[in-house]
Computed example of a mutant assay.
Amino acid sequence: MSAQGALRWLPFGVMAAVAVTDVLAGPSLGFLPLLTLGPSFASVSGSVQRTAMVGLVALALCIPLAAYNDLLLRWQNNLTIVTIVSVTGVGMLAGHLRLRRERELADVRLVAEAAQRVLLRPVPRRAADLQVALSYTSAAAEARIGGDLYEVVTTPHGVRLLIGDVQGKGLEAVETAAWVLGAFREAAYDEPELDEVSARLEASLSRHLGGEKFVTAILAEVHDGEILLLNHGHPPPLHLGVDGEAVAVEPADAGLPLGLGPLASDRPKTHQVPFRGGDRILLFTDGVIEARDDGGAFYPLSDRVHLLRADDPQDALDALRADLVRHTGGPLPDDAAMLLLHRQT
């Protein structure tokens, strides 16, 4: 039986146990006030109507048990009946308020997730000579709406990519992600150089971000035989060569996250990475490498490189995502976005 099914039957099971115990104990001990546990438990997970029904069942059990205990019409039993009615009424009110708040929360989540799906458009599975695989794993329910973002666009200047992670969560993070994606989609077509795209993003965020908020990100541009990377304080990508070697691509000159550009004396510089036929590059957010198991150990991405060798890039990324979820043993504490690029031979 599922947990939800157990909760549905719990009020009746408790009242049945009280009735049996009262009969077996005899008239000397009074267990009838414990019948109020039925409507109390019903109000936790049931509807208003269900709580009322459980309260009526409690009253229906109370009357014959009171007669069995020779308490019918005595003040003790009258007090028990008043208590059952009062607890049922309070439970119905509590259930009504709980259901209303659950509906309101569900509506807010639906609107926010719909907005996030609009922002995070499906990426093309093929761009020029690239195969692109995507995985986006939502966090636990209380942090479901996050600020991870990604985009792949084919421009006159080549295939350009963005992956990033907004500081914070919720609607505010989604709003910031919208600014970043909107600025990138426009600048990626207009600017001939990748560092100029970065400058446009920085300028856009400087107008909209306040305080110490920031966005870690990697911008990429694919060329013949190589890929240009510009790292704004983001976890380094993982380059998987066709020869089997896997290397974390650490930038020689790491930049500050977007939004903190005014604090840096120099703008970050692009760096070139060989990217030939058969090579793969995995770009990911920190929700991947910061996921912990029950013992507190971080996800060992470097030890899972073999999962990314499957012939189909999407199958490879799906296998890595499944392994990540197994590592945590449940929902992730933070969103985890991954882009796997495969250069066809």
Results as ranks from 00 to 15, higher is better:
residue 237 P to E: 05
residue 253 D to Q: 14
residue 270 T to G: 10
residue 276 R to C: 11
residue 262 P to R: 13
residue 251 P to F: 01
residue 229 L to V: 13
residue 255 G to S: 06
residue 275 F to E: 08
residue 259 G to I: 01
residue 229 L to P: 02
residue 269 K to W: 11
residue 253 D to H: 14
residue 256 L to P: 10
residue 287 G to R: 11
residue 231 N to W: 05
residue 275 F to W: 09
residue 239 H to M: 02
residue 287 G to Y: 01
residue 280 R to P: 04
residue 240 L to S: 00
residue 251 P to N: 09
residue 230 L to R: 13
residue 261 G to M: 07
residue 275 F to S: 02
residue 249 V to N: 03
residue 279 D to P: 01
residue 241 G to T: 07
residue 261 G to N: 08
residue 263 L to A: 11
residue 275 F to P: 08
residue 271 H to M: 12
residue 240 L to K: 01
residue 275 F to Y: 05
residue 234 H to T: 12
residue 274 P to T: 08
residue 281 I to N: 00
residue 231 N to H: 15
residue 230 L to G: 04
residue 285 T to R: 05
residue 282 L to I: 04
residue 229 L to Q: 06
residue 227 I to E: 01
residue 267 R to H: 15
residue 285 T to H: 10
residue 237 P to M: 04
residue 241 G to K: 05
residue 266 D to E: 15
residue 289 I to M: 12
residue 279 D to M: 09
residue 244 G to P: 01
residue 245 E to D: 13
residue 277 G to S: 12
residue 251 P to K: 12
residue 247 V to Q: 07
residue 255 G to W: 05
residue 233 G to E: 13
residue 251 P to C: 06
residue 234 H to I: 09
residue 252 A to Y: 09
residue 235 P to I: 02
residue 246 A to Q: 04
residue 265 S to H: 15
residue 275 F to K: 08
residue 270 T to V: 13
residue 233 G to T: 12
residue 282 L to D: 01
residue 248 A to I: 10
residue 249 V to L: 15
residue 260 L to F: 05
residue 228 L to F: 14
residue 278 G to Y: 07
residue 279 D to Y: 03
residue 236 P to N: 06
residue 273 V to M: 03
residue 279 D to T: 02
residue 254 A to F: 09
residue 259 G to M: 07
residue 259 G to W: 02
residue 253 D to R: 14
residue 241 G to R: 05
residue 284 F to H: 14
residue 249 V to A: 13
residue 248 A to K: 08
residue 249 V to P: 01
residue 258 L to N: 00
residue 259 G to N: 00
residue 285 T to D: 07
residue 287 G to D: 02
residue 289 I to F: 00
residue 253 D to P: 08
residue 242 V to H: 10
residue 250 E to R: 11
residue 262 P to K: 11
residue 277 G to K: 11
residue 239 H to F: 08
residue 288 V to T: 01
residue 288 V to Q: 03
residue 229 L to F: 15
residue 276 R to W: 10
residue 286 D to R: 00
residue 259 G to V: 07
residue 240 L to W: 04
residue 261 G to V: 09
residue 248 A to W: 13
residue 230 L to K: 11
residue 273 V to H: 04
residue 229 L to T: 06
residue 233 G to Q: 15
residue 284 F to E: 04
residue 272 Q to H: 14
residue 238 L to D: 02
residue 243 D to V: 02
residue 256 L to G: 06
residue 229 L to G: 03
residue 262 P to Y: 11
residue 261 G to C: 01
residue 265 S to W: 08
residue 253 D to T: 13
residue 242 V to K: 13
residue 265 S to E: 15
